[in-house]
Design a protein around this nucleic acid. Structure first.
Lengths: 195, 195, 195, 195
DNA sequence: CATGAATGAGGGTTCATTCAT
DNA sequence: GATGAATGAACCCTCATTCAT
């Protein structure tokens, strides 16, 4: 069970692409195998199951994501700068792991009920603590508006950022940093001309 | 292949709830039948197929949605007021058709490739014209900032609004109008304290 | 899940026949379905799984077997009469449940490692207590020879009786009672002419 | 497709152990390879197929068995002495080839339908002639009881002896000769105290 | 001699769907 | 209107086998 790590990675990249395009449930192993140029059964030399493929895709993604987030959170930045850094980091992650992010968006809720995917729920809690905590810090410090429901604000930003994975195409017009700047500009200052 | 319209509506409401909770593909006809207190085969007296159930759910939702949107668009409001009205209308729609909206969010992309669901793509185009057009009108009129990429802004607002269906619970703390006000406040003025 | 008990019983009888003839592992559900005149998938309307079919076959058999055995053991017979009654009861059981007995013989050991089939191991222990206990009683009472290893004797009789299921054909030359008498005659008095 | 005979024998011994423990069908080539410390594909350097492994195991066993049996049958012993010698020889065979005997017990019937395993059916016929013939000789000579159905008696002894392979453990309490003596004592004189 | 990777046939199971009652 | 039973296609997965290296 297993094999050269490069082949695994190639196959996982292929699988992620198909999962992201069609949804996990709607994707057959045959389709993945077709996309990889092999027969369905051959995938099982490399992976235990279809489930273990998503598992590996998602946990690899979350691993990298949290490496980036943790670095940001440990940097001791102010609330506004932290939000800026987290948003930027998120768009970089979308750029590098677009299929994984799309899968995460669509499937995390169903999957997380299975014990095997318990880490998805854990991650979501950590996520909320990081973002909501920063927002609270900023509200207390007078950097963010005090008249907003912070839970609502948290969901607003979270969704806004990650949903981008559903339309983002790497190599398109905008770099991740450019998109991040625009998003931040909207989120922080609004789209209306301030009088 | 007929029957009282009320029974149909009840069954569709049940089906929508299950589809929204588990995803269209992951939902079996049996689960819907269980939830409706009948056997799987019995559903086929009321509906042609599983597909025709989502079809009916989605087209009913889109019908009502466009009734509301068209009324707003025909009202001759200014750009900012139009956006406000559209957002408010959207949250009302989420309040009334939460399961349908959730299904729409998750499944529209897969489904719209089938001829039968062509109206989903049509709706999306109409949607984009309405929102993007309003944003452009506002930017030209100096009501919205001119330094933002409007396509990006459009996606930003669209996602922000609809994703709410994934966590919104009718009868919760906030009324649709209250949520709309908060969202609009964030989107229009930003979350940062303006100096 | 389930249905008219008669249909279940018919299907189980068919399945038992095929299992007995080809072995549990070597039997495909398609073969069972063929023998029952239906498609493989249709079996799953009646049963959860191939495993649950053997399960039901074996537990039904053991249920009846122990009903008979318990009656014998509760009758307060002497050791020799108890052995005679148990042997006779066993051949009657083989006559009525030949396929089930054959399956039990071949598959019990593999299956009993699974928790679901724990009752097989339980039954085997009860079995040993009943037979070995009777033999010990008989040896103490001077009815059975004292110079034999009783564990060996137990296995000897046990195997002797049950293996008959592999060649016994109901409706053949001998009634179960006739076969039991011959077996008992051999086991009790030996095949050699006693001088 | 060749290689040192010792390696073959080692591998066959390993395979026989696994086949005996799990059944032929339930055993995967991978399990055999694992037990032999190699990969599944590597076995095919030594053997044509999984089938050829059992083939070699069974024919080697039957070869040795018949060498022993033929020697006994050619010795010109009386009926009782012949039976005694055959039983003793059988237990010796079980002692030396326990896995092969266990496989033979469980799989002979399925396998013998294939042309390749025709020799299994042949052996069974020879077997019956040897034992049944000896019993008839003994009955005619007044050494064995004349009131027993000899076919039944034959099956009784045959099963009794070979089934021992399913529980016999080499190096246990009893030597093969000791077990043979006990079995013979039971079979010849019965377990009841003769008045 | 052995490995790594793949093949391809088939096995157990699920599920939307049908239809006689 | 609903049930019970069956269909048939497709799905995930297993496994004996092959073969280039």
């Amino acid at each position: 069970m297993s094999a050269s790590p490069e082949r695994r990675s190639e196959l996982l990249a292929t699988a992620a692409e198909v999962f992201a395009a069609q949804g996990y449930n709607a994707t057959t192993v045959r389709q993945i195998a077709d996309a990889a140029g092999m027969l369905a059964g051959s995938l099982y030399y490399h992976f235990d199951s279809k489930e273990s493929m998503v598992d590996e895709i998602l946990s690899a993604f979350l691993g990298e994501l949290w490496a980036g987030y943790d670095a940001v959170l440990a940097a001791g930045l102010g609330p506004r700068e932290t939000i800026e850094a987290l948003v930027t980091e998120s768009f970089r992650e979308i750029d590098r792991h677009r299929p994984a992010v799309a899968i995460y968006q669509k499937e995390a809720m169903h999957l997380s009920v299975q014990p095997r995917f318990g880490y998805l729920a854990d991650s979501q809690k950590k996520f909320e603590r990081a973002w909501l905590g920063t927002l609270e810090r900023g509200a207390d410090a007078g950097v963010f508006r005090a008249d907003l429901d912070l839970r609502l604000t948290y969901r607003f930003i979270r969704d806004t950022v990650w949903v981008a994975a559903s339309w983002y195409r790497p190599g398109g017009l905008h770099t991740p940093e450019e998109i991040a700047r625009q998003y931040l500009s909207m989120v922080l200052d609004g789209i209306a001309v301030q009088s």
